[in-house]
């Protein structure tokens, strides 16, 4: 059975009553434990598709099932709770809060849980250990390299032990060796911790790490 099932999704944006179709009747499944790469030219709707699966945007039509939940049917606050439990995000530009230390950034999603302070600390330290930054806990984002920032972001994404990990060009802003580190880390999360990963990328080396590749072009999956 597949963990994620995208069913006949269409998505248009509206600008002043002008319809901009982005995704056109897309269907695909992601089995549990998969590492899927999503490729396609700029503007083809990759980010849009990822946002729909992650429940931060709504499709114009269609349903998205993530382990038996139809994400498109949840209201805003249900969706927020669902995201907190089920989705880990990794963005191209890391999106760490600059005023918080690495530790505090990773702790953020746990503040919404019922965990005690001590339990939170254990989880955060564990997540930072996985990404190899246990010695940078007290550093602020601006005191870290891009690759390190992205690893903190990955720690933040996995600290809640989410159902799926979603990464939008996670290496897009990194140099070659940092990019490789991140890719190896994602690969390890997939093989060792059995995380289901959906990753958008332009980078052929990144795509190599994925088990399967889907191509998106002009709003259609090929």
């Amino acid at each position: 059975m597949s963990l994620v099932s995208v069913q006949k999704i269409s998505k248009s944006y509206w600008r002043d009553s002008l319809e901009i179709p982005v995704l056109n009747n897309i269907s695909f499944d992601v089995p549990e434990g998969e590492f899927v790469g999503l490729m396609g030219p700029s503007g083809s709707g990759k980010t849009t598709l990822l946002n729909l699966i992650a429940g931060i945007d709504r499709p114009t039509q269609g349903a998205i099932m993530v382990s038996d939940t139809d994400v498109t049917r949840l209201n805003e606050s249900q969706l927020a709770k669902w995201r907190a439990r089920n989705v880990g995000f990794v963005f191209q530009f890391y999106n760490l809060l600059p005023v918080l230390t690495a530790f505090e950034n990773v702790e953020l999603p746990l503040l919404l849980s019922k965990l005690s302070k001590k339990e939170r600390r254990e989880h955060v330290e564990f997540a930072l250990k996985i990404v190899g930054l246990e010695d940078r806990m007290k550093h602020y984002p601006k005191q870290l390299s891009g690759g390190q920032e992205q690893r903190v972001a990955i720690a933040r994404a996995i600290v809640t032990d989410p159902t799926i990990l979603i990464a939008d060009e996670p290496t897009g802003d990194l140099d070659k060796s940092s990019a490789l580190e991140i890719l190896n880390l994602l690969e390890r999360l997939n093989s060792e911790f059995k995380k289901t990963i959906i990753m958008v990328t332009h980078d052929p080396r990144a795509a190599e790490k994925a088990h399967s590749i889907r191509h998106l072009d002009k709003g259609e999956l090929t």
Binding site: A54, K81, A84
Partner: peptide
């Protein structure tokens, strides 16, 4: 505004 969106993404209400 971007940070607020990140917080919302993480599930903050």
């Amino acid at each position: 505004i971007r940070e607020y969106s990140v917080l919302k993404t993480l599930g903050f209400s």
